[in-house]
Simulated scan of single mutants.
Amino acid sequence: MSLTSRRALMLAPLGLAVAGGAGFYGMLRGMGTGSYDPRGVPSVLIGRAPPDFTLPPLAGSGKPAFAAAELRDLPSPVLVNYWASWCVPCIIEHPQLMRLSREGVPVWGINYKDKPQDAGAFLTRHGDPFARLAADESGRVAIDWGVYGVPETYFIDRQGIIRWRWAGPVTPEVLDGDIRPLLRRYA
């Protein structure tokens, strides 16, 4: 190995560190100006109908499941919420889902890669906000929706078009700042 090759190999980590630092600096500047949203994970489904799917009901829930066809021509907008009993952020968002359900907002749940008995115990302990409840045990439907983790919530208008997506827990701020304006707009 020549001296030039050794020198290039020794400078490679420095070059990677400089590139990483420049990317981090750009991210920080974007956050400062408001042009970078660290929670903003774009979805190709915004403005489109949900992908075609049919899921079974969550075993033991006594709730009907749903399919993509049932998300078209709705009497009112619907929130579709991917959740799991093992998901800690799902506990954080659960009071907001319960509040929406008590207010008459249809919340349809998709239980993600969970054991039915664990999901049932979660709903018994925390309450059940779901008007319909399906199980995506394999996670295949979640892949089609572009879900990368739970919780994740989608707002679907009365025509069956996805208008909004939130990756992460629905907090009181998200409820008041995002969901309530969408409900007013698409009611």
Rank of each mutant, 00 (worst) to 15 (best):
T33L: 12
Y112C: 02
L133M: 12
V170G: 09
V44D: 15
D128P: 00
S5D: 12
G40W: 11
G127L: 01
I92M: 00
R6V: 05
S43M: 06
F53H: 13
T171S: 03
Y186K: 06
G15Q: 11
T153R: 07
R140I: 00
W83F: 09
R48N: 14
A121I: 00
L28T: 12
I179R: 11
L182M: 06
V150E: 14
T54W: 07
V105W: 04
M10S: 10
A134W: 04
A142G: 04
N81V: 07
A12E: 11
V88Y: 04
A65D: 05
E173F: 11
R132S: 05
V147G: 09
R184H: 12
T171K: 01
I46D: 13
V170M: 13
G149Q: 04
P169I: 02
I110K: 07
A69P: 05
R39V: 05
D157Y: 05
F155W: 07
S2L: 14
T33W: 07
G30A: 14
Y154R: 04
V107Y: 03
G168S: 04
A59Q: 14
L74S: 09
W145G: 07
M1P: 06
E93C: 02
P95K: 01
L9Y: 15
D114Q: 01
E137D: 09
L97R: 01
G23K: 08
Y154V: 02
R185F: 04
R48E: 14
Q96H: 04
D178S: 08
L123Y: 02
